[in-house]
């Protein structure tokens, strides 16, 4: 743990984007998330860390209601996005997910061309009026995902033909193209090699200037490198939440300390 580089960038608090209070998640009988309250800041990277099965991914998926696709999953408590409860009856989860985008563990480009992958979101949400506008979104999204230079000559090649790291950046571009307010990333680097991981991490840091990013990660080094805020989950509880530098250098809870020093996990 001694070579850990703490992100010492100033935390730019633009206010709270998501305010989760007293969230409970049940999978059938089992209580997966126990009374979690957390504030996700705008224009910052928040990392969720914790041992496997601690509920960090489950909690992430409640933030854009991806859990709705699992019939036995039940969510209680309130999650406010810009002051509006996303579990309100009037909220269409489909519409919500356009604002809270998601990138998954395994790169999952659609079996379509690179262009169509990125244009997918804008098309279904009707974000553009002309082909030129759509071209613009595709290009800017690919630029934001730092993929433009690599693929600009083969936009109509299948997305599945890219390398793993490129595929994941394509998925990020795809998520960015709908101009979400929050970007959720579920262990986005776990299927990638170290070089691709470094590229994606760099990208996450840059995405911070436009979006609020929440990242679930297995790797404490990664959390330390890319995030400003860190939340430590353990057995469905949010154990500790604070500035990344503070969590890693001066954890308040003994469980956090044991985890980051490698005793549990």
């Amino acid at each position: 743990m001694n070579d850990m580089r703490i992100a010492d960038r100033a935390v730019d608090t633009h206010g709270i984007r998501i305010k989760a209070s007293a969230v409970q998640v049940y999978y059938g009988e089992s209580h997966a998330i126990k009374d979690v309250s957390v504030d996700i800041l705008d224009k910052a990277v928040t990392a969720f860390i914790g041992p496997s099965g601690c509920g960090k991914s489950t909690f992430l998926r409640t933030l854009n209601r991806m859990n709705d696709t699992i019939p036995i999953c039940k969510v209680q408590g309130s999650i406010l996005l810009d002051g509006e409860n996303i579990y309100d009856k009037r909220v269409d989860p489909v519409q919500l997910r356009a604002k809270v985008g998601m990138v998954f563990q395994k790169p999952n480009p659609f079996p379509k061309s690179i262009y169509d992958n990125v244009a997918y979101g804008p098309r279904i949400h009707g974000l553009t009026r002309s082909k030129a506008e759509l071209d613009g979104i595709v290009e800017s999204s690919l630029r934001k995902a730092a993929l433009w230079n690599e693929v600009k000559d083969r936009l109509h090649a299948p997305g599945t033909g890219l390398s793993g790291g490129q595929q994941q950046r394509l998925c990020i571009a795809r998520a960015v193209a709908t101009s979400p307010e929050v970007l959720l990333m579920d262990e986005p680097c776990s299927a990638l090699d170290p070089i691709a991981t470094a590229q994606v991490e760099e990208l996450i840091d840059e995405l911070r200037s436009n979006f609020s990013v929440v990242i679930v990660t297995h790797s404490m080094q990664q959390a330390a490198r890319v995030s400003q805020k860190t939340a430590f989950f353990h057995l469905g509880n949010l154990v500790e939440y604070g500035e990344t530098s503070q969590i890693f250098t001066n954890p308040k809870d003994p469980r956090t300390e044991s985890y980051i020093t490698g005793r549990i996990g």
């Binding site: 395994k106 997918y120 998520a175």
Partner: peptide
């Protein structure tokens, strides 16, 4: 399922 998740995550019905 990952393809479906990808599409749902982008907000498709």
């Amino acid at each position: 399922q990952s393809l479906r998740d990808g599409a749902f995550g982008l907000g498709s019905t």
